[in-house]
Simulated scan of single mutants.
Amino acid sequence: MSQLPQSSDQFLTPEECAEVDATLMPARDRFTARVSIYSLRSLKQIAQAAGITIDTLTEQQIIDWVEQDPTLRPEDGFDPNFKRFFARLVISSLRPLKQIAQEADVAIEALTLSQVVSWFEKEAKARIDQGEDSTFQG
């Protein structure tokens, strides 16, 4: 099983992109999987900085971390609206990541790239089988 890298200086690694792209998921599901993979990396950093586990992070801790992230500076083109949007993406990713961890019977921090991608692939297939208007179970 592939481990998720700890570096946050890129959205996804070539390995992560290749694993997501190798699926037969629709584009929106591949996008959601990519966001969750990146969010997991960010959540690991936030939890580590706070000295707690991901499942005990509060929304406010996530928002505060995004607000203070030096890579999201206004001089680099990031405005407060983007920071709020990004914080919401990370917070929203917690729901499926918690579900994946629960189904895999591991801590969120221990999730692998393969586990995350496989879960999204399974959910996309179930949604398609049930009809396009369905969303993942949660």
Rank of each mutant, 00 (worst) to 15 (best):
77 G>L: 04
105 D>F: 03
101 A>Y: 15
65 W>A: 14
115 Q>I: 01
112 T>G: 15
71 T>A: 14
111 L>H: 13
109 E>M: 10
107 A>F: 11
103 E>R: 15
57 L>A: 06
109 E>H: 09
119 W>E: 05
111 L>S: 07
96 P>Q: 09
90 V>L: 05
105 D>R: 04
60 Q>E: 00
75 E>I: 15
119 W>C: 06
102 Q>P: 04
111 L>T: 06
64 D>Q: 12
104 A>M: 12
80 P>N: 08
91 I>W: 00
111 L>Q: 14
84 R>K: 10
97 L>V: 07
81 N>R: 06
62 I>F: 01
59 E>N: 12
66 V>P: 05
90 V>F: 13
72 L>P: 03
95 R>I: 05
73 R>I: 10
61 Q>Y: 01
61 Q>I: 01
57 L>P: 01
79 D>H: 08
62 I>S: 02
65 W>V: 06
83 K>I: 06
94 L>E: 02
79 D>E: 11
62 I>Y: 00
69 D>P: 03
104 A>T: 07
119 W>G: 02
85 F>W: 15
74 P>N: 10
69 D>L: 02
105 D>M: 03
100 I>L: 08
64 D>Y: 05
64 D>L: 13
116 V>N: 09
73 R>P: 06
90 V>D: 09
77 G>H: 02
70 P>G: 08
83 K>Y: 09
88 R>I: 09
63 I>N: 00
114 S>C: 11
78 F>G: 01
103 E>K: 14
118 S>I: 05
95 R>T: 08
109 E>V: 06
119 W>Y: 04
75 E>C: 08
89 L>R: 09
103 E>V: 15
67 E>W: 03
106 V>W: 07
104 A>P: 00
96 P>L: 00
61 Q>E: 05
89 L>P: 02
91 I>K: 08
94 L>S: 02
115 Q>Y: 12
112 T>R: 15
62 I>D: 03
74 P>W: 14
114 S>N: 15
105 D>Q: 05
103 E>I: 15
62 I>V: 15
96 P>K: 07
96 P>I: 00
93 S>A: 14
76 D>W: 07
114 S>K: 14
101 A>Q: 12
73 R>M: 02
112 T>M: 13
74 P>V: 06
68 Q>Y: 09
106 V>N: 07
86 F>A: 01
60 Q>H: 10
65 W>G: 03
66 V>Q: 04
85 F>E: 09
71 T>Q: 10
76 D>N: 06
84 R>M: 07
77 G>T: 15
85 F>Q: 13
65 W>P: 12
97 L>R: 00
60 Q>C: 01
111 L>M: 10
81 N>G: 12
92 S>I: 04
65 W>L: 02
58 T>D: 02
59 E>P: 03
66 V>A: 00
117 V>R: 09
76 D>P: 13
70 P>N: 12
68 Q>P: 04
119 W>N: 08
78 F>R: 04
111 L>G: 10
86 F>C: 08
75 E>P: 04
88 R>V: 07
71 T>F: 10
83 K>C: 04
99 Q>W: 03
114 S>W: 14
80 P>Q: 01
107 A>I: 08
86 F>I: 03
70 P>T: 11
77 G>R: 06
106 V>P: 03
110 A>I: 01
63 I>E: 12
